[in-house]
Write a protein that binds this DNA or RNA. Structure first.
Length: 720
RNA sequence: GGGCGAUUAGCUCAGUUGGUAGAGCAGCUCGUUUACACCGAGAAGGUCAGGGGUUCGAGUCCCUUAUCGCCCACCA
């Protein structure tokens, strides 16, 4: 027996060298498995992409959970004999990464515009590279059996080719268009963002009821008086008797130093019950007003600029930030005797997900994806319909199922997707301009005088292609694409169902006509032991690396997985991890007992009645968990394994064995020895996906029998 | 405003299709150092949030109330 077993199990001594052993074997790569004869060439495929972590820093416990679930899936499928590919990569995460680097530069008192686009991007790439290296090291520490030979990056050359190809095709089909519309402008980040990147927060605010001027016949209400300098109409409901006589009339007056002309119009969208039932229409600074203005062909007047400052109005208004100008306008209204009412209300305001700035709706010329246009070569269905059908008809299954409803609801309310960003880091829009000409292509056009669009693409545009841009697309006859598309499972957090999952469905259904994956497994959030979200401000962030140093990766993996069903948040309690560290040691000592009391291949012998009973019990367990593994019920399987190993195998079977080895007949002893050996090997195999390190470590130190493979990782799941 | 989830032992949470309530931690009693003190045996602890219903039988299915949490939303 190896002397190691005389000491308690120490994960620190073993984990990194075991990962090296696996990695050097090359068997994370399914091709190598086939070459070595460990996987049949004709075997069924199982493929999955790693949701590429953002290169914005280091991995947190949420990532750890994701890696654990996916590694369990991967190791299990590999042991079932499938050609198993788990494909890694990282995401450039455009806005997130750029703003991170901007913050670092801020500390060095450097502004990005002083550096210029090229030099700034150099800095970002350098940051991204460092972050990437950390992330990869962390993935390895978690034991993730990823095929690093296929690693990808959302911003590398192959992915750029995919992105540009997709863009060109969508442009050709009229799905991508350029138009001036109201955008979500982030004044802090100085860029537009998509509807999904807007986070609504509640905050106290005031509703002002006022008259534009003494000559104007009735008051209107608003929460943003400063925008009223840009009003070009007042909208009322067509059936509202109070305002019938004013419809069609025009009024001109001076408003806080700005000459304003409004026309009273009738529009169905106005709710006569709300407020005073009349709406000041500010087409340049409100989504809804912009639409009303389009319907009524009203002029558009911008009063706020990209920095959130007023460009019109009297002193104290022009040049000021909107909040300051608001006060000034309200004071002016008060002085003029135009203010009718001032009421405290709770208002929902949109803020930018990344910078936290309050969104300023502004008119801007931007690139959009039309989600409602019928696509002839996709059965005349729109992108929206393609996304709906993928789940309704094409068999994508979302776990837990309740998220299907959430998914449908999101799609039904989806509006055109704004895909251009005014930042430098990301895929530059593949459009070139020369005078009145526009060229869209994969490479720059021939000839002089072409200038490429300054903007970059929303980061989710490139991640939307991830499941196939990593498999060789736009070539669809590469071995990887043929073998591994569509992927089997997409495992990710439910918080990016819209951002990412839906976008992948959109892109894949449109560009390829297939679904990107068959099953979507959504995990929850990892919270602290009091159920709070981990955040820097609360100071309750748990670093997975620290936990690994303390308890070992296997213990952390078990703590994250036991009892954590799909879609549910986990509260991570250190006591739980501690418990599984003890479990690892228990397994270690079980091995020691068996090594001390048995030899690996006892001569042919039949099982005693008692051992037959134990065997049946074990087979029943294996049958149960094999089924549950196929149903992704890892939270149940892990608990059952824990319970079986500790409270059946150790507490009952091993305790009983002591008596048999002391007082039993020769036949009973032989039977028990054989049973213990078979059991140990079965236990190692079925525990391996959950606790890969300790099971492999034990495997490496026990004698081999016929049919045993060198690495536990490459062995087959017990067959019944 | 719309939708979803949670509520089970002191704490953190399991409980797969309805069939006598489970685990870890903490605490109590006893034991063992000859696989394991990162141990074993045992006991204690719960009207499964409240109310109503379906059923021979409900933690599990239906309705309702309460509290907490999450997501979505262009009511000025």
């Amino acid at each position: 027996m190896n002397e190691k077993f005389l000491q308690p199990y120490n994960p620190k001594d073993t984990e990194s060298s075991l990962y090296e052993l696996w990695e050097q074997s090359g068997f994370f790569n399914p091709d190598a498995m086939i070459q070595a004869g460990l996987t049949e060439e004709s075997a069924e495929a199982f493929s999955m992409v790693l949701p590429p972590p953002n290169v914005t820093g280091t991995l947190h416990t949420g990532h750890a959970l994701m890696l654990v679930i996916q590694d369990i899936m991967t190791r299990h499928q590999r042991m079932l004999g499938k050609r198993t590919l788990w494909l890694p990569g990282t995401d450039h995460a455009a806005i997130a990464t750029q703003s991170k680097v901007e913050k670092i530069l801020e500390k060095e008192k450097i502004r990005k515009h002083d550096l210029g686009r090229e030099v700034f991007l150099e800095r970002v790439h350098q940051f991204a590279q460092e972050s990437h290296d950390t992330i990869v090291a962390q993935c390895k520490k978690m034991g993730a059996s990823l095929d690093w030979s296929r690693e990808a990056y959302t911003l590398d050359e192959e992915r750029e080719k995919a992105v540009y190809t997709a863009f060109k095709q969508m442009y050709g089909d009229g799905l991508i268009y350029r138009k001036e519309r109201i955008v979500n402008w982030d004044p802090k980040g100085q860029t537009t963002i998509s509807d999904d990147e807007v986070v609504h927060i509640e905050r106290p605010s005031k509703m002002y009821t006022f008259k534009y001027s003494h000559d104007f016949p009735f008051p209107i209400a608003t929460t943003r008086p400063e925008t009223k300098l840009g009003d070009t109409a007042v909208a009322v409901h067509p059936d509202d008797p109070r305002y019938q006589k004013y419809i069609g009339k025009e009024f001109s007056f001076d408003f806080a130093g700005e000459p304003v002309t409004v026309k009273v119009i009738a529009d169905e969208q106005v709710d006569p019950e709300f407020g005073v039932g009349a709406l000041g229409v500010t087409p340049a600074h409100s989504q809804i007003d912009f639409e009303i203005a389009e319907r009524h062909k009203l002029p558009l007047k911008q009063v706020i600029n990209e920095y959130g400052k007023m460009i019109l109005g009297m002193d104290g208004v022009r040049g000021e930030k909107t909040e300051v100008a608001r006060e000034a306008v309200v004071n002016w209204l008060r002085e003029q005797g135009l203010l009718v009412e001032e009421k405290e209300i709770v208002q929902n305001v949109g803020t930018a997900e990344r910078t936290g700035a309050v969104i300023e709706p502004l008119p801007k010329l931007q690139w959009w994806i039309n989600v409602n246009k019928k696509i002839p070569h996709r059965d005349n269905r729109s992108l929206k319909e393609l996304m709906l059908d993928a789940v309704r008809k094409d068999g994508i299954e979302i776990l837990p199922q309740r998220f299907e409803k959430v998914y449908f609801h999101w799609i039904e309310n989806l509006r055109d997707w704004n895909i251009s960003r005014q930042i430098w880091f990301g895929h530059r829009i593949p459009v070139w301009y020369r005078n009145d000409e526009t060229y869209v292509g994969i490479t720059a056009p021939e000839g002089e005088g072409w200038v490429q669009d300054e903007d970059t693409l929303d980061t989710w545009f490139s991640s939307g292609l991830w499941t196939f841009s990593t498999l060789g697309w736009p070539d669809t006859d590469t071995p990887d694409f043929v073998n591994y598309h569509p992927t089997n499972v997409l495992e990710t957090g439910h918080d990016i169902l819209f951002f990412w999952v839906a976008r992948m469905v959109l892109m894949t259904k449109y560009l390829i006509g297939e679904i990107p994956f068959k099953t979507v497994y959504l995990h929850g959030l990892v919270r602290d032991n009091k159920g709070r979200k981990m955040s820097k401000s609360l100071g309750n962030i748990i670093d997975p690396v620290e936990l690994i140093d303390k308890y070992g990766t296997d213990a952390l993996r078990m703590a994250l997985i036991v009892g954590n069903g799909p879609g549910n948040d986990v509260n991570l309690d250190e006591n739980k991890i501690k418990a599984y560290k003890k479990f690892a040691n228990k397994l270690w000592n079980i091995t020691r007992f068996i090594l001390e009391n048995t030899v690996p291949s006892p001569e042919e012998t039949d099982y005693s009645p008692k051992d037959q009973e134990h065997t049946q019990e074990q087979e029943k367990l294996i049958a149960e968990i094999s089924q549950e593994m196929n149903e992704y019920k890892y939270y149940l399987v892990s608990e059952k394994l824990y319970h079986y190993v500790w409270h059946n195998f150790a507490d009952i079977i091993i305790e009983e064995s002591k008596d048999i080895f002391e007082n039993g007949t020769a036949e009973e002893k032989l039977s028990r020895q054989k049973f213990l050996w078979q059991s140990l090997k079965n236990i190692l195999k079925i525990l391996h996906p959950f606790m890969p390190f300790i099971t492999e470590e034990i495997w490496q130190h026990i004698p081999r029998e016929e049919n045993d493979r060198e690495l536990l990782m490459t062995n087959l799941w017990p067959k019944l």
